[in-house]
Design a binder for these strands. Structure first.
Length: 256
DNA sequence: AAGAATGTCAACCGCGTAAGA
DNA sequence: CTCTTACGCGGTTGACATTCT
């Protein structure tokens, strides 16, 4: 038995929004706000749309502070960094990027950023700065920006401000699936599945254990040196991020 | 030039959860 | 406490655009 739909599908218009509908929604929201009730709002605004659809259209497209496309290198760095910590918590990631929506960030990741990283990882040259763990150094990303300056130093807003340890960048083998970039998401999902909150899911995603199986044993432990080219951090096994960012990478990526 | 393949992104779907009755 | 309602979110879909063969 399925969930009851939020509105009568036969009675509401679906598909792309017309300029007239956009204008009706925009002017209504600007004058009255959503009224705290998106479900009843379309009727008041004279729209034959589902309330959810109106909310989505407003949040993802009509909101005045929205920026579309043209992600900067800095934004790329923030997205990658937060994704490794939070997994697919797009709303959280988007909240750190001014004018970006979760949908935008999600689309950008799935269609561009992920592919770019995979392509870069495929051509990465493995640089063993110490053993274990080996370090993967990314080759240049496509485009005019050289790899060395792809992600310049910047203050990345993160959920974790203390010194980073190796643990923070090593994904549990159990969560590794076909998609190496689904690592954190997998842990978040697992956490969510047992009833924990998003916060705890995020927390567990950022607390990967280095004790897990192949991780950290010198064979399956890889770090992706994404931008500094400086190799791995302190000799005490701690990584610091003075402007360089290290990301987890499934070892199979570079070996296929 | 035309059709196929691939990429992009807006929109939809359905689940989890918070809030209120 | 239970039920209902609505919101917010992440995953997925599908239409359109672009690139390739």
């Amino acid at each position: 038995m399925g969930r009851t739909p939020c509105c009568d599908r036969a009675a509401v218009k679906r598909g792309p929004w017309s300029p007239e509908e956009d204008e009706a929604l925009r002017s209504y929201v600007q004058r009255h706000g959503s009224g705290g009730n998106w479900i009843s709002m379309p009727k008041k605004a004279g729209l034959k749309r589902c309330g959810k659809s109106c909310r989505l259209r407003w949040l993802n497209y009509l909101r005045p502070d929205i920026r579309h496309g043209g992600f900067t290198d800095e934004e790329d760095a923030v997205i990658v960094s937060l994704y490794t910590q939070l997994g697919s918590k797009w709303s959280l990631i988007a909240s750190q990027l001014e004018g970006r929506t979760d949908n935008d960030v999600k689309n950008y990741w799935n269609t561009k950023l992920k592919k770019r990283l995979l392509a870069a990882a495929a051509t990465a040259d493995v640089v063993s700065t110490r053993s274990p763990p080996p370090v993967l150094r990314l080759a240049a990303a496509p485009g005019p920006t050289p790899a060395s300056s792809l992600f310049p130093s910047l203050a990345i807003p993160t959920v974790k401000t203390e010194t980073y340890t190796c643990d923070d960048f090593l994904a549990p083998t159990a969560f590794r699936d076909d998609d190496p970039f689904a690592v954190a998401g997998g842990s978040a999902d697992a956490a969510a599945a047992d009833g924990s909150t998003s916060a705890s899911a995020a927390s567990s995603a950022s607390n990967w254990s280095a004790d897990n199986g192949a991780v950290g044993d010198g064979e399956g432990s890889y770090l992706l040196d994404f931008c500094t080219g400086s190799g791995i951090g302190g000799a005490d096994g701690h990584l610091q991020l003075p402007g360089g960012y290290y990301y987890p990478l499934d070892p199979t990526l570079s070996l296929v």
